[in-house]
């Protein structure tokens, strides 16, 4: 049992979520261990975004429990804030703050939530902006950057809070094809450094290189969990096979 060595940092058990009558998640169980890279895929509307958004409580779950880094997510605002400071999130639409410069986007949370001094926050921000290879854009506004650059800033912004876990919600879906690679490269780098990552994506090439574990969702359920080799070469479920044939045939 290696469970004692690497206890799960994210633990979902029996999580259900309803939007009015529609059930978006059906008793989802999932574990993510420290340093593990999990790629979640599935057709649109399968609940994969909802699940990832429940992990830092952008959505609240209705049943079951979610424990992140030893903290259970309840209505308690203190717990939620504590979890959010440990968990970074990257969105499909970047969601950079348009009224702040790139640098200010990155320093806002460390200064306000972590109480870093401006100098310290700037130093950390520049360090991460260099990691995502856009230190020279630090004083521009988001609207002046390309989509790929904006998404890399969004990643840097999350990293500035020094999170233990990073969540990616379809980070390349809103990008023009030529910009997808620059974002994926940054994510691969991050994975190599040992970051715990949960990634919702359709980029199967990325999944094959990076993932420790593939999760396939459909209709709000987790249909299949497997290592990438098994998942791509020998899928068990018919739904997985069908999905893979559709997505890989292009």
């Amino acid at each position: 049992m290696n469970e004692s060595v690497t206890a799960p940092v994210i633990e979902l058990s029996g999580v259900s979520k309803f939007f009015d009558q529609f059930q978006a998640l059906r008793e989802v169980d999932m574990d993510v261990r420290l340093g593990e890279k999990v790629v979640v895929c599935g057709p649109s509307g399968s609940g994969k975004s909802t699940m990832i958004r429940c992990i830092n409580r952008l959505e609240s779950h209705d049943q079951g429990r979610i424990v992140v880094d030893g903290i259970e997510l309840t209505h308690d605002m203190g717990n939620i804030l504590a979890v959010r400071r440990e968990v970074g999130m990257v969105f499909q639409q970047f969601n950079l703050f348009p009224h702040l410069t790139v640098l200010e986007n990155c320093t806002l949370a460390p200064m306000r939530a972590r109480k870093l001094s401006r100098e310290e926050a700037n130093r950390v921000a520049m360090e991460y902006l260099e990691r995502v290879q856009i230190p020279d854009q630090a004083n521009k506004y988001p609207a002046q950057l390309s989509g790929g650059q904006q998404q890399r800033v969004a990643i840097a912004r999350s990293l500035c809070m020094k999170p233990r876990i990073m969540l990616f919600d379809e980070p390349t879906s809103a990008l023009d094809p030529e910009m997808i690679k620059e974002v994926l490269d940054v994510m691969v780098e991050l994975a190599k450094e040992g970051m715990t990552m949960v990634v919702v994506t359709h980029e199967m090439g990325f999944a094959k290189t990076v993932a420790d574990k593939m999760v396939f969702m459909d209709h709000g359920e987790i249909v299949e969990v497997a290592p990438p080799q098994t998942f791509f070469n020998d899928p068990q479920s018919d739904r997985t096979k069908q999905f893979l044939s559709q997505i890989l045939s292009h």
């Binding site: 029996g14 779950h61 049943q63 079951g64 429990r65 030893g70 309840t74 308690d76």
Partner: peptide
């Protein structure tokens, strides 16, 4: 499956434990 209200054991690990 336990629902959110009954999971007291895990809640102990959260911050709730400190609150009166």
């Amino acid at each position: 499956m336990a629902d959110a209200g009954t999971s007291t054991a895990l809640a102990q690990r959260g911050r709730n434990a400190k609150k009166p």
